[in-house]
Design a binder for these strands. Structure first.
Length: 330
RNA sequence: CGAUUGGAAUAG
């Protein structure tokens, strides 16, 4: 729709300006149409419309998020050559891209480089690096970076990354300590903070404590959402407590939070792994009855479940039924 | 008028 309007405006002799080009380029990036986004940049150059720092930053962000950091780095260099100074957003986008490409150390170097050019890191810079370190299993370093942050205060995003990072390392007591530090600083935990904790405890198999945390959030008037409940459902499934997992499924509906395909698939997968693909199949039918469509993950679990019990025929039938939206065999 | 950061399920 945006592309059509854009063509229309050109047809009507209304020259697009930088803002218009940039808005289109950003939209193309967000729709994963990076080739077309790059073409927008070229056509700006052809039409003597000078791209600015926002144009370049949008493209760098788009390239980074689609796993094309090297191209992003090239754009970064070329903007400098063309006399366009990167700002904090440009750096943040590229730092994020490096983190996504498992190059946190390069990301840290880039922050140092940005400081050397006089560009001051902001909370987003720090949050991005802290999250990158945590994702790389380096939560203690991330915690040190938090303490070294200059000119800004940690927010719930900072803490959620750290909590997840410590949970991932199975350092639940550290995750808890970080959570308490956050409270002491006067920050209100939001649904993401609680969900991260619930999921962390579930992943470590400490499901009863996870359930306690979920009820604590309800008591604190922070409503759990489908992510929170799904973590708990999956937690019970992974330790083989299927009856309790189904109770949580019921409880979430009762509280007005409808399970989605991820919630159901957690249960379906557990039944399949427990050698009960027919129970899983029945649950899928119940799910469909509730208006939730299976996706490729749901089918993958069921197909391998039936294969596991030697029922290759049923597995084939399922494979042939995969023709939905998010449901193409891969 | 346009750009950047945190949470859930899956086989080999």
């Amino acid at each position: 729709e945006a592309c059509k309007l854009f063509e229309k405006m050109q047809a009507e002799d209304c020259e697009p300006d930088v803002v218009t080009y940039t808005a289109l380029l950003d939209g193309l990036c967000k729709g994963n149409r990076l080739t077309e986004a790059r073409q927008v940049l070229e056509s700006m150059e052809d039409r003597n419309c000078v791209p600015n720092v926002i144009t370049y930053s949008s493209l760098i962000d788009g390239l980074c998020k689609t796993g094309r950091v090297y191209e992003a780095q090239d754009i970064f260099k070329s903007m400098v050559v063309r006399g366009c100074e990167p700002n904090v957003v440009t750096y943040n986008s590229l730092i994020h891209g490096l983190c996504l490409a498992n190059s946190v150390d390069s990301a840290i170097l880039l922050m140092e480089e940005m400081m050397a050019t006089g560009c001051v890191p902001d909370l987003i810079t720090y949050n991005t690096l802290i999250d990158g370190l945590c994702e790389a299993g380096r939560a203690p370093e991330a915690n040190r970076l938090l303490k070294e942050m200059k000119g800004c205060e940690a927010d719930v995003i900072t803490y959620s990354s750290l909590i997840k990072g410590f949970c991932k390392m199975e350092k639940l007591e550290m995750a808890r300590t970080v959570f308490e530090e956050m409270l002491r600083k006067g920050l209100l935990p939001d649904v993401v903070i609680y969900s991260t904790l619930v999921d962390g405890y579930c992943s470590a198999g400490v499901v009863d404590e996870a359930e306690r945390i979920l009820e604590e959030m309800v008591a604190n008037e922070c409503a759990p959402d489908v992510f929170t409940y799904t973590s708990l459902v999956d937690g019970f499934c992974k330790v083989g407590r299927m009856v309790e997992a189904r109770k949580v499924l019921k409880r979430m509906s009762r509280r007005g939070c409808e399970p989605n395909v991820v919630t159901y698939t957690a249960l379906i997968d557990a039944y399949c792994k427990a050698g009960k693909p027919t129970v899983a199949y029945t649950l899928m039918e119940e799910m469909i009855g509730n208006g939730v469509k299976p996706n490729v993950v749901t089918y993958r679990s069921l197909i391998s479940g039936f294969c596991g019990t030697g029922d290759v025929e049923e597995a084939r039938r399922l494979l042939s039924r995969m023709d939905g939206e998010d449901c193409k065999p891969d």
